[in-house]
Design a protein around this nucleic acid. Structure first.
Length: 137
DNA sequence: TTTCTTACA
DNA sequence: TGTAAGTA
């Protein structure tokens, strides 16, 4: 099938399909006219690629274990485990970073309300205490 | 009409 | 990733 058909069957844009090829995730043949010719396997291949990209893996990482995954259904791919583990630690780091950003924002909100309270206190105090301001003379 | 490559208001 | 350009 040609790229247009594969795009329809997978829901992936033609642009992305060509990009995957550049990233060595798929290797379609070329017909005489230079058009990419995909086998029927391409459909599941692209779906697998989408799956791993959605899990946050880079195209480079995917290129590494894709073959094994497509044939052995992931269970017997030995070199895929370390990739998963590194991804997990990476996620832990991101979680920590996000936690810091979150607490930072929370702190900002607290200080805003704090300042507001102080300002309101000052305004209330000014009204109760009959302050006579001299005009200078 | 579809696909190809290259390049970017 | 989309899209325009100029082909084959």
């Amino acid at each position: 099938m040609k790229i247009g058909e594969l795009a329809r069957k997978t829901g992936v844009s033609i642009r992305s399909l060509r990009y995957y090829e550049r990233q060595k995730l798929i290797a379609p043949m070329r017909s005489d006219n230079g058009y990419r010719e995909y086998s029927l396997l391409a459909v599941e291949q692209v779906k697998a690629i989408r799956l791993y990209m959605n899990l946050g893996f880079t195209t480079e990482q995917i290129a590494g274990f894709l073959h094994c995954v497509l044939q052995n259904k992931e269970a017997f791919c030995r070199d895929i485990v370390p990739v998963y583990e590194s991804k997990i630690t990476e996620l832990d780091e991101q979680i920590q970073l996000l936690a810091m950003i979150k607490s930072n924002l929370e702190e900002r909100v607290r200080s805003i309300f704090e300042e507001r309270r102080m300002a309101e206190e000052r305004a209330k105090g000014a009204m109760t205490h009959d302050h006579h301001h001299d005009d200078g003379r």
